[in-house]
Design a protein around this nucleic acid. Structure first.
Lengths: 192, 192
DNA sequence: CGCCGAGTTGAACTGAATCAAGAAACGTGG
DNA sequence: CCACGTTTCTTGATTCAGTTCAACTCGGCG
């Protein structure tokens, strides 16, 4: 099963030699966990990167006493507590499963080591980060000067199935509006 | 002069071997241009990445007939028309000098080639992209659920000197509020 | 059956947008 | 060095999208 998943990942992101893959495989943990499980708790140091084989996951953080959703990851996507992972600071983010899921878990130190050792793995890392960067760029684009409806439509375009997996409250938070507003936007849409 | 700048860049981002640097230097153009110059025009294909040696630059795009500022770059930062450069689509972004500036210009194809050829250059690229990614992450953080004042304060924290270089209108647009609102926020601040 | 979390709906309120008009600052040419 | 037009910034009045607070509905589940 792990071989299949790795195959999929390298197809999607960037090819790796057999040698690199074998070395990499030594340090992958496969996790099968239930909805609601916390992968990262706020304030913890975290050096883990996750890949979603099946299911979905969200990252969120606390701001003025409110939980704000930052990031979703679905099948074949990566996720991490971004400040914890990249800046090596205690994480401001929680990561929580939004459905029962199967995940791969990687350690930063091992990935760094692999990147230093193998040129192809370095490239692979670069490509993953580039995708995350472009995703963020896209989000900024539609957080800046968009109405509630525009944000929602934009999100649905990107993730047409999102409502099957993620609760209304989390979606609203992700696009930067309140749950009540999203509910109204949705109601208006149905009427038309 | 080019040597000095490269020295600074590798210090700031990631070290490169002499061989890599020499190869790289063959394909760098140094530009000295006036405020208001357009480096990239909307609708153009662009494969250029810029580094600001001295001065400042902005990227902006058109949305419902309004120019929205996306990205600033100051001394020792990189900038590009992000969709044009990474997605190879006609650029939705203009890039324009906000002051008389000295820049380095790189071509995507040459950088890609160098990344494939030299492991250390691949790592260097990864680190640059990671910085851009973290910057974007930070922006999403404060575009989501912040008041006008919070956004402004946040920006000043990051770029205390920004008002010396960038016009009020561009700053307002960057943080997702109107020029009038920013003017009022600023006025209120002075009074206290 | 009754509880609980998730979603909906209503009414009042508010921060920021919009529209409009002036004031400052800035550069350019006489 | 001043007069000019242009661009940038400020201030005021009005409007509106979205928040807030509160009550209510719905579906699942012990």
């Amino acid at each position: 099963m792990l071989n299949e998943v790795i195959n999929k990942i390298t197809k999607e992101y960037s090819n790796l030699s057999n040698e690199t893959i074998n070395e990499w495989k030594k340090n992958i943990r496969v996790l099968e966990l239930k909805k609601g499980t916390q992968l990262v708790k706020e304030g913890n140091l975290t050096n883990k990167l996750y890949f979603i084989c099946e299911g979905s996951v969200k990252a969120h953080h606390l701001k003025n006493g409110k939980l704000i959703t930052d990031w979703f990851a679905f099948n074949n996507e990566f996720i991490c507590a971004i400040t914890g992972y990249f800046l090596k600071k205690p994480s401001e983010h929680y990561i929580e499963l939004t459905e029962n899921s199967i995940l791969l878990e990687f350690e930063r130190e091992k990935l760094t080591e692999l990147s230093s050792k193998y040129h192809d793995f370095e490239r692979f890392s670069r490509i993953i980060i580039t995708k995350i960067m472009l995703e963020l760029q896209y989000r900024v684009l539609y957080l800046q000067f968009s109405t509630a409806k525009e944000r929602y439509d934009f999100l649905l375009e990107q993730y047409p199935q999102i409502e099957l997996h993620i609760s209304l409250g989390d979606i609203a938070s992700y696009i930067g509006i309140t749950q009540e507003t999203l509910s109204r936007v949705r109601a208006k849409k149905k009427r038309i």
